[in-house]
Design a binder for these strands. Structure first.
Lengths: 184, 184
DNA sequence: GAGCCACTATACAGATCGGTATACGATGGG
DNA sequence: CCCATCGTATACCGATCTGTATAGTGGCTC
């Protein structure tokens, strides 16, 4: 990726997340990146494709962030599940006050044929599979069902975080996940 | 409310929910309602105000729908909490495939000073208070904490429903709420 | 030095955005 | 009958939207 393209992706990431996808025009992104629209379209082809790369990039960075946190907890431990919630809280606390970028994007993209749609649903099913895998490591029976519950708690916490429904919802979800795991 | 205004609000409700707020222009709403823009602006003043009334109307209809379902279950019973999840599932199953309108709207409205913002957060805190009240009816101690967990499950289920992460997430949330209530 | 690459600058196309203006027709209550 | 209300139709405003076109610059490599 060229330096200009990198700056475009960085600017798009900031603006799309902070103000929403439809609310941000390509002129603003190009200006914020110190780049002309020509460069933007030469590198990304269309706004839709830029949206795809914005979400894919954010997803990639989140998975790397999470993998780093997970490897600090020994495999087979129930604490690995809690580490996911801890990672989410850390990720959200600094610089993600508006909740999950995938959920927000899906609210703006109604068309299921939009090229960004698989990126969004892909992250969610990946998270579901991750929970199932982590649970299966120490408690194989009923891992699927427990994983679904954990996912609901996690998604709900992200939403409540963005809406500020009550303080520290991700921490609360983590505590509930702990008692769920203790009882399993 | 005049017949024209009613049709405008109905059209706005359909279009805003199905395609998103920013993606729908006032020209389309007026055309879909069989009304000119003049009429639309005479009745609602601005698009922002129309958005507010769209959300407020939907919130009002949801609360009426929920109240009707709740009064069919005797007060003081834990089943009243489950009735909330049942109501949500019924509400979402027919004609709400894209999840919670408030969550979707909050994803598009980044400005906390937007007049629609209090409507969104208002429904969420109202739901939290409702859960707390319903729990308190039969189990006063720790009602606040349990209500928060129920809210997270509920919000997460709405999101998973909209994203189709797995089948019948609201039913799953209901089942988890049941075991939570049994243990309390 | 020729060719390629990343990028800049300016301008414009065609459409749509939210919002306003003017003028006219229908209806219904005092 | 008068007149306000509710609604119609059409046209327009400036701004902004995505996307394209032309022309040119500096640097790197073969």
């Amino acid at each position: 990726m060229t330096p200009g393209a990198r700056r475009v992706l960085a600017a798009a990431g900031r603006l799309f997340y902070a103000r929403g996808i439809h609310a941000v025009g390509v002129d603003l992104i190009a200006a914020e990146a110190g780049v002309t629209k020509k460069t933007l379209y030469d590198r990304f082809g269309s706004k839709d494709q830029l949206v795809v790369e914005y979400l894919a990039d954010r997803d990639e960075r989140w998975r790397a962030f999470l993998a780093d946190r997970l490897q600090q907890v020994e495999p087979g431990s129930a604490d690995r599940v809690l580490a996911v919630f801890d990672a989410s809280r850390a990720w959200m606390t600094d610089s993600s006050p508006r909740g999950c970028a995938m959920i927000n994007a899906s609210a703006e993209i109604s068309d299921p044929d939009h090229p960004a749609y698989p990126v969004i649903t892909g992250q969610k099913t990946w998270m579901l599979d991750l929970f199932a895998e982590l649970v299966r490591e120490f408690h194989p029976t009923g891992a699927e069902e427990l994983a679904r519950t954990l996912l609901l708690l996690h998604e709900g916490a992200l939403v409540a975080h963005g809406l500020r429904t009550f303080p520290d919802p991700i921490g609360h979800a983590r505590d509930q996940a702990r008692t769920l795991l203790d009882r399993a």
